[in-house]
């Protein structure tokens, strides 16, 4: 469909979001807890945090939850009843307050899970998810979306994009039929508008020049010595992977007894020492050097080779979350320079 434009006041936006919850759709939006902001199930729109920066945790859990049941089983006399959950209909959900980088990431994540043998869980959730994003008016020193294939006013992956255009008012772009459907119920709350130039209201994001051509450089840098120093202070936790909107590695584990239980899928991370450990004790990535290299290579070399885009949208969450200050912007710049230096004749 062609993009539809509108104008909406802040007050009416809250009314619209209230209407969504009242209408029986689940609303997810940022909510503040202490100093951190998380996407949460919202029943009272006054709880929504309109913080200018991305949330602590990305919205990926809306498609790919921290833990989910793939199937459950129960012994019934001689036979085993297995519930594969296919009959479960995912509820329609509205996700509000994603930043453009988040929406791009949700789209890439859904594409990843749909590639080859499709993952029905992520696919069904994506079908049912309406994404209403807010353009960024502010970026911080860890952001680099404009160098990672997105931008502060990018509508990719969003159904509706709102740009605060001063005076408690938003310019609204309705980008999909799904967005239009949601709005149809709230006709009185917004006015028709015309395409507006919102660029003046958007954040200025510091470019990350090293990212151009980084993937190509990485392709020949597997054996480089840069990884050892670069990864030295990495503690090997999963903070970066778990706040990342595109990290999608997981574990499958059974819980319960052989008579009754569930097969679960949980987030996992290539940064953990056990991720690739064989039962024999052999580990293809024995130290954090190999594991950090895998994280960078996977995002910036392997993913682009396979999917045409990086496994990173430049949201900066990993840099903000890392307890050892493994700042991704800086790492990319430093690795890029280090690799270039080593491959120079």
């Amino acid at each position: 469909m062609s993009t539809h434009h509108g104008v909406l006041s802040h007050q009416n936006l809250l009314k619209l979001l209230s209407g969504i919850t009242a209408g029986g759709m689940e609303l997810y939006a940022p909510r503040k807890t202490g100093q951190k902001v998380f996407f949460d199930h919202i029943t009272d729109v006054r709880e929504i945090a309109f913080d200018p920066l991305p949330t602590t945790e990305s919205p990926k859990a809306l498609l790919f939850p921290r833990v989910e049941r793939l199937l459950s089983f129960a012994r019934d006399g001689e036979s085993m009843r297995v519930d594969d959950r296919c009959a479960d209909l995912m509820p329609r959900r509205v996700l509000f307050g994603t930043r453009p980088c988040d929406a791009v990431a949700l789209q890439r994540l859904a594409e990843f899970f749909a590639d080859g043998i499709e993952d029905m869980f992520v696919g069904k959730r994506r079908e049912q998810l309406v994404v209403i994003s807010l353009s960024c008016a502010v970026a911080d020193a860890d952001c680099f979306c404009t160098s990672a294939g997105s931008g502060p006013g990018d509508g990719t992956g969003s159904d509706i994009l709102l740009t605060a255009s001063g005076g408690e008012r938003y310019d609204m772009e309705v980008l999909t039929d799904r967005g239009r459907e949601v709005l149809a119920t709230f006709a009185g709350l917004w006015d028709e508008g015309s395409p507006a130039d919102t660029s003046g209201y958007l954040a200025v994001v510091e470019p990350l020049p090293a990212l151009a051509g980084f993937g190509a450089k990485l392709a020949g840098a597997f054996a480089s010595t840069v990884w050892k120093d670069a990864s030295l202070r990495c503690l090997g936790c999963g903070a970066c992977a778990y706040v990342c909107p595109l990290c999608s590695c997981f574990d499958i584990e059974d819980e319960g007894t052989p008579s009754k239980g569930s097969r679960l899928r949980c987030w996992d991370s290539c940064g953990f020492s056990l991720f690739t450990l064989h039962t024999s004790g052999h580990n293809p990535r024995p130290t954090q050097t190999e594991r950090w290299r895998q994280r960078v290579m996977h995002k910036f070399s392997y993913m682009p080779a396979r999917f045409g885009h990086a496994g990173c949208v430049g949201c900066g969450r990993c840099s903000r979350a890392c307890p050892a200050d493994m700042n991704l912007r800086e790492q990319i710049t430093m690795l890029d320079a280090g690799i270039a230096l080593q491959s120079a004749p």
């Binding site: 945790e57 503690l235 936790c237 999963g238 992977a241 778990y242 953990f272 307890p323």
Partner: peptide, 12 residues
């Protein structure tokens, strides 16, 4: 409820 088991506590 906010813990996603990244084990940063353990690693640090």
């Amino acid at each position: 409820s906010r813990c996603f088991k990244c084990y940063a506590c353990r690693s640090a």
